[in-house]
Design a protein around this nucleic acid. Structure first.
Lengths: 198, 198
DNA sequence: ACCTGAACACCGTTCAAGT
DNA sequence: ACCTGAACACCGTTCAAGT
């Protein structure tokens, strides 16, 4: 019937394969980190390796596919943050949401930070990164306007700082209390420590 | 003659092999990072792979061997720092020396931070780590006594913070200016920002 | 005692062959 | 058009065999 009208439709099994790959990759990356074997992912997805490569030519492309699926969660959290009155509190909560996002898989912060550099092209993670940095810059600017953040740093700087916290977190070398202290170092590093506006 | 008297001497070619391995590893790690191929290292050293494993059973053991050779440089730098009058300045310089040390090879900070956790045993990097953390704690304590560092954090916390800066540095995603801003975040994060003692 | 290279198991990536 | 598994090159690690 409509086999002709829907000319640029995605083929049924292609869609299914893509979903299976993402699902298998998710579980493997969650347990093994971003360096998990792609062969194993393909096997669990029940497809040949080459099919995986056809769908996601690089590991970064696969990561980007996974992160896109997680993006709604982050945006939902972002909407809740936007309802806050205090811009300093909003910035703090956003940075925490960002940290959680960057800590999803072990080793995730590294490709993301690298992608944040290559402003040019090619890297499939660059776009997601740019969005995150822009958001961070917005929250930072709002906090600064309210006298709750210092001058001389930008969204990219805070993105790097949060990425590095996520990196420490993923090494599992720091317990919760130590992570909290690390966050407090970063917080009083970008903020106007204690004194409000004045 | 004295072949019998020097009973627990290191065999000549063993010493030579060890030196060759360290030399080859140094150049490979410098160019390829800590994940460089050990097979390639062995080949460049002109020995069989198994000999490398005999000398250094794990990659961490090899790293520890290399870092021990670099330790004098760090201690020399440390002695210069100890001559400074201002404990805050001393702490800042020490953290920078530490950052340089942790940035020697790409990917070095990760095994070191992991080793800093496993307080127990087995990991050959744990000892070097513990020393670095102790020194950091000493400089921090001195700075705090002079009212130049805040309460509530310890040497281990600063070690983590510096490791994470070294990690960002090694990703090569941040230029010199961005790294300086990241350091400034950490600095005003642990310090009593601006106001001295009071 | 120490060294060696072959052996095994694993992985990333590509490509000729299938449907 | 899409999928497949075999193929190639590489690596970490161990072990039987050499000296």
């Amino acid at each position: 019937m409509n086999t002709r009208t829907t000319s640029r439709k995605p083929r049924a099994d292609v869609v299914r394969n893509r979903a299976r790959i993402l699902e298998a990759a998710e579980t493997h990356f969650l347990t093994q980190g971003v360096a998990a074997s792609l062969e194993a992912v393909a096997k669990e997805a029940g497809i040949g390796v080459a099919t995986l490569y056809r769908h996601f030519p690089t590991r970064e492309a696969l990561l980007a596919g996974l992160l896109n699926e997680r993006r709604d969660e982050l945006e939902k959290r972002q909407r809740r943050i936007d309802n806050l009155e205090d811009p300093g509190e909003a910035l703090r909560r956003w940075l925490r949401a960002l940290e959680d996002y960057l800590s999803l898989y072990n080793g995730l912060s590294e490709p993301l930070v690298i992608a944040s550099k290559t402003s040019g092209s090619s890297n499939p993670l660059t776009r997601s990164c740019a969005d995150l940095i822009t958001s961070t810059g917005d929250y930072l600017e709002a906090a600064r306007a309210a006298g709750q953040a210092r001058d001389g740093i930008d969204g990219r700087d805070l993105f790097m700082a949060v990425s590095s916290v996520a990196w420490v977190r993923n090494t599992r070398a720091a317990d919760d209390a130590a992570l909290a202290r690390l966050r407090s170092i970063v917080e009083s590093g970008y903020g106007r420590t204690g004194q409000t506006a004045r």
